[in-house]
Simulated assay, not measured.
Amino acid sequence: MMGLVGEQWPRAAAEGPGVGLRERKKAKTRAAIQQEALRLFRERGYEATTMEQIAEAAEVSQSTVFRYFPTKDELVVSDEQDAFFLQAWRAQPADLPVLSALRRAIQETLTSLSPGEFRAQRDRDVLMVTVPGLWAASLGNINQTTQMITSLVAERSGRVESAPSVRALSAAIFGVILSAMIRWAGDPDYDVARDLDQMLAHLDGDLRAGSVPD
């Protein structure tokens, strides 16, 4: 979800029961390529890094890099965390309100990341915010994220996606996530998990107080 909660091989699916050895190897190869690419982008700059250098760092051929990531942009904009977030969302109690379920699912997703994965998420955010071409390339993920949020809000609230209340809440949630993403990109010491949860808690409090129309 835009690097916070956004189309790689789903990690949850790749690690789940019944997944074959070949699929697990493919998932690990893909993740390794992207992590090495993000490291090189951070150290050398996005424009200065070549696909050949990425392949060498990941210890794979260039053809393997292109098989998983047809373009250089996709090394940044592709994100596997949506699948894990959806799994966490589905696991929340059915009677839990929308924002409470969302807060729990996001926190479970973020805390599940290894230090390397967490660093990679921030690297992606920095690149998408600072490289104009990548911001444009990420529009597809933005549309996917907004649609996913709308669908989840409608599903849990028992309303249709076109309902004004659903669209208003979904837009507010997306705004909170985008705000956290932009701030995280500019501040390496920013506690994104804590602040994101606090902002969503304030939004939840406003709704419960009736300051936001249903």
Rank of each mutant, 00 (worst) to 15 (best):
P70K: 05
P115L: 10
Q53G: 11
A83L: 02
L127R: 06
L86M: 06
G116Y: 09
E59N: 09
L96K: 14
E52T: 14
E15P: 00
G18H: 13
R156K: 04
E15Q: 14
G6F: 01
P164D: 03
D214I: 07
T111G: 05
L102V: 05
L75K: 02
A154G: 01
A180S: 06
G45T: 01
E59F: 05
I106H: 02
Q87Y: 10
D206S: 12
S112R: 13
Q147D: 06
P115K: 07
E47I: 00
E15H: 09
D125S: 15
L169E: 02
T130W: 12
S165R: 10
A101L: 06
S170H: 06
A168F: 09
A137M: 01
Q62H: 12
A171Q: 14
V153F: 04
A185T: 10
R119P: 12
D206G: 09
K26E: 04
D191P: 01
Q121S: 09
L40M: 05
G3T: 01
L96R: 13
Q35V: 02
D123M: 10
V192R: 05
A48P: 00
G205A: 15
E47Q: 13
D191N: 08
I182S: 04
D206C: 15
L169P: 03
E23C: 06
A32K: 11
F174E: 02
S61W: 08
G158H: 13
I142V: 15
S114T: 15
G18A: 12
R42T: 07
L207S: 08
R67T: 08
S157C: 07
D189Q: 04
T64V: 11
Q8L: 14
P97N: 06
Q92C: 15
L152F: 00
L86C: 02
A101C: 05
E74K: 10
M2I: 15
E108H: 04
A91S: 14
P115A: 08
V126G: 03
L86I: 04
M148F: 01
A154W: 00
V60G: 01
D191V: 04
A91Y: 03
L203N: 10
S162Q: 15
R44S: 15
A31Q: 12
R44G: 10
A12S: 14
L169G: 03
I177M: 15
A101S: 14
D206Q: 15
D73W: 09
S162L: 09
A32Y: 04
E15R: 14
R124Y: 11
P70W: 07
G45D: 13
E56R: 11
H202W: 13
S138V: 03
K72C: 03
